[in-house]
Design a protein around this nucleic acid. Structure first.
Length: 419
RNA sequence: GUGAGCGUGGCCAAGUGGUUAAGGCGCCAGGUUGUGGCCCUGGAGAUCGAGGGUUCAAAUCCCUUCGCUCACCCCA
């Protein structure tokens, strides 16, 4: 085999498409029902946007972006995540002058240079939302609810919402120090990765999966216990809002997120069964990000939802996709003249709004088999004899009945069969 | 970046040293005069991922390489 898809990417074949279109339409409808407007941003951006936005020392920026110089010498990065570009657009188009809050949703293709595995790809798709200009906890609850409802809308009933607050610039430094001093005397009891995390990314110590580290992490100080007054009030208000809309949450003191920009609320929605790369929704508040990108201090919050992962769960839960029972006609023909007529007729039917396809130039039997295989609802059969009389045979493939129809009446009859 | 498993026709898959590499799905053609879905018959399609080695003999053993998958890391 000469060519194949690049590592970590995949083709989405026709059989797979219904899942994608189902997801996209349901997710869009759900976001719109909360008042969100769609935004699309380019697939690549100035490399600096992500360095400033995601954080210089995160793995994503250090080793996972597709970054290259274009022909004009500009440093370009293929979008690795959805939030920074939307923030850029918010600022660039003066959306801070719109009535706040501004609610946006998007579908994006993201790129990260990683070793692929189940649920993790080099090119992956995300649906996400962002809300700017409102720091109230009710917005946190709303954003979380949108994520939850989107999953509901595609039939994913079994899911768990994990929730935590990691504080803000006011209280987090103190907490991180607390965390460090808890771990330092215990370095001999933790794994090698954790020793590295202790220096580089202490929050990550909390979600280590190594069995040997579990006793240590279990006793570690919890960020929610070290919140400043403002953060604690926000946190408690959020929990109240969630209870009001009856979203079952699970406070997870070990939940931290990978991007530097998160403040206060972080959350994720995961399927109940244990899996490695299974997080369907991950998000949080990022009140400092807009400022970091050159705007006025503006609160923001959002989430990213992995479409591949969501669809995986749609399949796992055996969700029945809505079927479209729309009329679809295959035109079979016997003889060259009839083939020409069939082709013209197919064109007319399509113009009139009825999907129609020409059967291949083979035996009639074979053409009928083809019609079945394409799940046509009707076959139109044209031969010399019909041509002479200005009629066609119209066969209902589901019922197995057929009759002659005058050429002039065909469109009307087919339209009548839409029921 | 680290570790493990696997690579046989479009797909699934038997075969673990020895004549022309099973089978199923799918595909194509037939099953009388112009008709589908089931069934029957026939057909096309594989240098057994690639390269090298061991052997009288390798898809089967060894080495190298490429690819895929899974896990760690990280994350959607």
């Amino acid at each position: 085999m000469r060519f194949q898809v690049p590592k970590g990417t995949s083709d989405i074949l026709p059989d797979e498409q219904p899942y994608w279109r189902f997801f996209e339409s349901r997710a869009s409808e759900t976001a719109a029902s909360f008042g969100y407007g769609r935004i699309d941003t380019p697939m690549f951006e100035d490399a600096q946007l992500f360095v400033r936005g995601v954080g210089e020392v995160t793995d994503i920026i250090e080793s996972e972006t597709y970054t290259f110089e274009d022909r004009g010498g500009d440093l370009i990065t293929l979008r690795p995540e959805g939030t920074a570009p939307v923030c850029r657009a918010y600022l660039e188009h003066g959306m801070h002058n719109l009535p706040q809050p501004v609610r946006l949703y998007y579908f994006s293709t993201n790129f990260r240079y990683e070793r692929p595995q189940a649920g993790r790809y080099r090119q992956h798709h995300q649906m996400g939302i962002e809300v700017f200009g409102d720091g109230d906890a009710s917005i946190d609850a709303e954003v979380i609810e949108v994520g939850w409802r989107v999953l509901d809308s595609v039939g994913i009933r079994d899911k768990i919402l994990g929730l935590n607050s990691i504080g803000d610039t006011e209280c987090r430094p103190g907490y991180v120090e607390e965390l460090r001093s808890y771990y330092r005397p215990r370095v001999d009891d933790i794994c090698r990765d954790c020793r590295r995390r202790l220096d580089q990314n202490p929050l990550r110590l909390l979600d280590c999966k190594q069995a040997s580290c579990q006793p240590v992490t279990a006793g570690a100080p919890r960020s929610a216990d070290y919140l400043c007054t403002a953060c604690r009030e926000h946190w408690e208000a959020l929990l109240g809002y969630l209870r009001d809309v009856e979203l079952p949450y699970r406070i997870d003191h070990r939940l931290v997120r990978g991007f530097d920009y998160y403040t206060r609320t972080v959350f994720e929605i995961v399927p109940p069964d244990e899996g490695s790369q299974s997080t369907m929704v991950g998000g949080g508040r990022y009140d400092g990000l807009i400022e970091e990108l050159g705007g006025a201090p503006t609160p923001g919050i959002g989430f990213g939802m992995g479409v591949e992962r969501a669809i995986l769960n749609v399949k796992r839960q055996g969700v029945q996709l809505p079927t479209n029972s729309r009329t679809k006609v295959a035109l079979a023909h016997v003889g060259e003249a009839a083939r020409l007529r069939a082709a013209r007729l197919a064109s007319c039917l399509r113009m009139a709004g009825t999907p129609a396809m020409l059967a291949p130039r083979r035996s009639l039997r074979s053409q009928m088999r083809y019609a079945s295989s394409q799940s046509a609802t009707h076959a139109v059969i044209i031969g010399d004899e019909e041509m002479g009389r200005g009629v066609v045979v119209l066969r209902d493939l589901d019922r197995g009945e057929q009759r002659e129809v005058a050429l002039a009446d065909l469109e009307t009859v087919l339209r009548g069969s839409e029921a």
